[in-house]
């Protein structure tokens, strides 16, 4: 089968980007009034919504409470209409559970949880439209929502994926590139300190190339950071003008 050419000789990808370029990122904070924090993000055609509640006291069993820090509770779900064919179960399947766990780990690393012992922070993320890089969009959306909720964090958490096709690392894969089955790395980065909050990889990649791919992914994360930072600044600006004076 004549597979799609993912990277042309001229250096263009299927959607016209070059290897290191991101998809268009658009984001808004404070989309819901009732939640403590919320945000909406679009990365190309991948769209995600994040809502944060907390920190508040433990709900459900009190025994889960941690005496020295806050518990981060995450839930990842995909809207039934987010993919080409209607999904049966929006959350709770294996993939979603795994994603939930990843998100939890990421944000436990980023949020200053020790400030809120014996309390709980809830992060709910939903994918509205899936077009590759779901995890990354979720992390970025959740970061904005957490900031919107005013929860102190070490740094922004920015995530981006990177793949490796024809000896070239590609940043921010879209669905077509993901589906081709090549190696893929998802990286969540604390950009100021260059610390890695989470790193995940599927399929096989030669050791020699790993460094290049991570390099490309972290470059992409920093680009995302620039966009997110701008969004936050705009939002703050907007809010302060609303408050008057």
């Amino acid at each position: 089968m004549a597979g799609l050419e993912l990277l042309s000789d001229e250096g263009y990808r299927v959607d016209g980007r070059r290897a290191g370029e991101l998809r268009k990122v658009r984001a808004r904070m404070g989309v819901f009034a009732q939640a403590d924090g919320s945000a909406y993000i679009e990365q190309g055609n991948t769209k995600a919504l994040a809502v944060v509640y907390g920190p508040h006291e433990m709900r459900g069993s009190r025994s889960k409470a941690l005496h020295d820090r806050a518990l981060v509770n995450c839930q990842y779900s995909m809207a039934t209409f987010s993919t080409g064919e209607r999904k049966r179960r929006p959350h709770g399947d294996r993939k979603s559970s795994e994603m939930t766990l990843h998100l939890k780990q990421t944000f436990e690393a980023a949020i200053l949880t020790q400030l809120y012992p014996r309390s709980q922070i809830d992060i709910y993320v939903q994918i509205l439209q899936a077009d590759g890089g779901n995890y990354c969009a979720c992390v970025n959306a959740a970061t904005l929502a957490t900031i919107d909720a005013g929860i102190p964090m070490r740094d922004y958490v920015c995530a981006s994926s990177a793949g490796f096709i024809e000896d070239t690392p590609l940043a921010d894969l879209n669905y077509v590139e993901e589906a081709a089955g090549g190696p893929q790395v998802a990286l969540a980065l604390l950009p100021k300190s260059d610390q890695i909050a989470l790193l995940e990889m599927n399929s096989r990649l030669h050791e020699d190339h790993l460094e290049q791919v991570i390099e490309a992914a972290s470059k992409a994360c920093k680009d995302v950071y620039a966009v997110l930072d701008q969004v936050v600044r705009d939002h703050v600006h907007e809010v302060t003008t609303l408050l008057g004076e």
Binding site: V14, D15, G16, E21, K24, G44, N45, G84, D131, V176
Partner: peptide, 28 residues
Amino acid sequence: MQRTEKVLQLRGLQGRSVRIVREHYLRP
């Protein structure tokens, strides 16, 4: 990095017709 965005509606044939939405970036 300046770019515009276009969404292309394609009809893929795989048994039945499926609508595929793909991004398409343009550059000067």
